[in-house]
Design a protein around this nucleic acid. Structure first.
Length: 571
RNA sequence: UGGGGAGUCGUCCAAUGGCAGGACAUACGGCUCUGGACCGUAUAAUCGGGGUUCGAAUCCCUGCUCCCCAGCCA
């Protein structure tokens, strides 16, 4: 990831390019592009495509363009352009001066269209949408030719120019390619090239009222930019014959389209439509909600660009539909943060501990290691005093088997501090709720080691009460409670939203050095997980942290297994 | 039932006629001032049936399963 792991495994796209290069295709050039439509925020699936396209270019000494495929003004917005630029850049890729827009080519595309008309390969069709559908035929039956198919070149040219001039209302006419209405591939049955749309475009304004369709536009965009390998997802496989047909008719530079399988991730959805719905209808807190699989959501959650690029390398590229286990993504961020995130102590669910034999009013600073994986990260001072907080989960009055942590009469270590022994449990008289613990400490164990060599089975994190910084901490779980929320044909995916995907903890206690944590810094809260300052809600008055991902938790597994066993016994 | 694709450990990806390998996940052990990290071990796959070949995940035939396509979306 960050440093090592240079060798990327082979994949079929790389093999094709290597072969092309061997045969001197494209004069040895490799030029790719990432062509998003600005109609939504980028997600982890796009990250795969971005890493693929930019990665391939880099690997073969080529270039990769960032190009907005903005051919549908009714769905596209400036905000999406802005976010996409930000996200691709944040992922760590550079398109230099090659930021392009399909809309910049509208004039050129129009000229090409007239060329096709003049060649008798395109015609203006007066059928409406419903009629076009009827004429298209079905999967198993051929279509019928449009009655307008055999207009003269002159009439087509005249009509097409008048379409451009705005003489006709939306939907009344289209420009269509003249191919074959009985072609077994539906895309080849005289596909629409232009539709009339009197809509304001985010870049060209009201200049155009006809807009090119994807199939017509995309190959031209690639061709104009001198793209050599046009990588896209599997659903465009059926469109490749059309992509090729247009470029052949025009006799222009002809990139090679190669399709790969889009990314699916377990316990989440990747459909832009559904993601938009979650945002629009308030199921989540915007596109950058930390539970969203969007790049901006992952960023706010605390994922690093490195971890996402590493993930992209790990999952590989192939043509078969697949669902990557979300555990793979979590592995990638842990792998990165374990090496790079400074450690801190934070208590999420505080339980008060009074060290009864520690002098009142005494304070001392203890040395704590910032990152055991990185000696250069150094150490810091952590204040200790008579009253502390530990995690509620770290104490059990009646400890089960395999529970190593604090219990009445038991001795544990406070990390970087002292051994303490629990001598008393103070409870609320009425509720029986544990209010605080009374412990004694062994002054000889200062720093965390016993001179007599005695061992403890657990080390707990802690925070000095009088020095603690208050914070809110947000714990996230997977957004959906089933592995494939989109799979059920009976039920709507929203029924599978995990009601516990967000848990807000209000009363958290942090070690004081965390008070000046900045957005985009990642920390490990020892024994808990990786956390970062929330870019949206955190402020000087109120610190808010997000949990990026928990640490691997062996104890949680043991607990789960024990519960499972108990359940079985009952049966 | 037309066309286009795809089937390899639970998951993802390799092996391009020559010992089916890696990663994640899982289980167990070691180590540990994070029940983290790290180290080690184990479990675990070529969709089925034929054929070609000294040798097949790979080539051929055949069957099965899954995905995509009937937007004036991309």
């Amino acid at each position: 990831m960050p440093n090592e792991k240079p060798e990327k495994p082979a994949n079929f796209i790389r093999n094709i390019i290597t072969e092309d290069l061997k045969h001197g295709k494209n004069d040895g050039r490799v030029h790719t592009r990432f062509p998003p439509e600005p109609n939504g925020y980028l997600h982890i699936g796009h990250a795969k495509a971005i890493c693929l396209n930019f990665g391939i270019a880099e690997e073969f000494g080529g270039k990769c363009n960032l190009r907005f495929d903005d051919t549908n003004p009714t769905k596209e917005e400036e905000e999406y352009v802005r976010s996409i630029i930000e996200d691709v850049h944040w992922l760590g890729f550079d398109w230099e001066d090659r930021l392009f827009y399909a809309s910049d080519y509208f004039e050129k595309m129009y000229e090409y269209a007239e060329q096709l008309i003049k060649k008798g390969k395109a015609f203006v069709c007066d059928l409406n949408a419903e009629e076009v559908r009827q004429y298209r035929g079905t999967l198993t039956e051929p279509g019928k030719e449009s009655p307008y198919r055999n207009r003269s070149v002159e009439e087509n040219l005249d009509l097409f120019r008048r379409m451009r001039a705005g003489e006709f209302p939306d939907g009344t006419r289209t420009l269509r390619a003249k191919i074959d209405m009985s072609h077994p591939n539906l895309n080849m049955r005289d596909p629409v090239m232009y539709r009339i749309l009197h809509a304001n475009h985010h870049r060209t304004g009201d200049k155009w009222c006809i807009y090119p369709m994807y199939d017509w536009a995309h190959g031209l965009e690639d061709s104009i930019e001198g793209i050599t390998h046009s990588l896209c997802t599997l659903e465009f496989e059926d469109h490749r014959p059309l992509y090729d047909w247009f470029l052949e008719q025009l006799d222009v530079h002809h990139p090679q389209q190669i399709e790969f399988a889009r990314l699916n991730l377990s316990y989440t959805i990747m459909s832009k439509r559904k993601l938009l719905e979650l945002v629009r209808d308030g199921y989540v807190d915007g596109w950058d909600d930390p539970r969203m699989p969007t790049i901006s959501g992952l960023r706010r959650r605390g994922y690093t660009p490195e971890s996402i690029r590493y993930f992209s390398d790990l999952i590989g590229v192939a043509k078969r539909d697949s669902v990557v286990d979300i555990a793979m993504l979590e592995y990638c961020i842990r792998e990165d943060l374990n090496k790079n995130a400074p450690r801190r102590m934070a208590v999420l669910k505080p339980l008060k501990v009074v060290i009864t034999n520690y002098p009142e009013g005494k304070e001392e600073d203890l040395d704590a290691i910032n990152n055991p994986e990185d000696a250069s990260a150094g150490t810091r001072k952590v204040p200790f005093s008579r009253v502390l907080y530990i995690e509620q989960d770290d104490f059990r009055e009646d400890p089960p088997k395999k529970f190593f942590r604090l219990a009445p009469g038991r001795e544990v270590r406070l990390r970087y501090a002292y051994f303490i022994k629990c001598v008393d449990v103070v409870k609320d008289e009425n509720t029986g709720e544990i209010k605080e613990l009374h412990c004694t400490y062994d002054p000889a164990t200062r720093g965390g080691d016993a001179p007599d060599g005695r061992k403890v089975k657990a080390t707990l994190h802690w925070v000095s009460a009088m020095h603690a910084v208050d914070a809110e901490v947000r714990l996230y779980d997977r957004l959906f409670s089933v592995p494939d929320p989109g799979a059920d044909k009976e039920k709507d995916y929203k029924e599978f939203i995990n009601p516990n995907s967000l848990e807000i903890l209000e009363n958290c206690k942090l070690e004081p050095s965390l008070s000046n944590a900045k957005v985009s810094e990642n920390y490990q809260f020892e024994r808990l997980g990786y956390f970062c300052v929330d870019s949206k809600y955190s402020s000087a008055e109120k610190l808010v942290f997000n949990r990026t991902v928990s640490l691997k938790d062996t104890w949680a597994k043991i607990k789960k297994a024990m519960a499972e066993e108990a359940r079985k016994k009952k049966k």
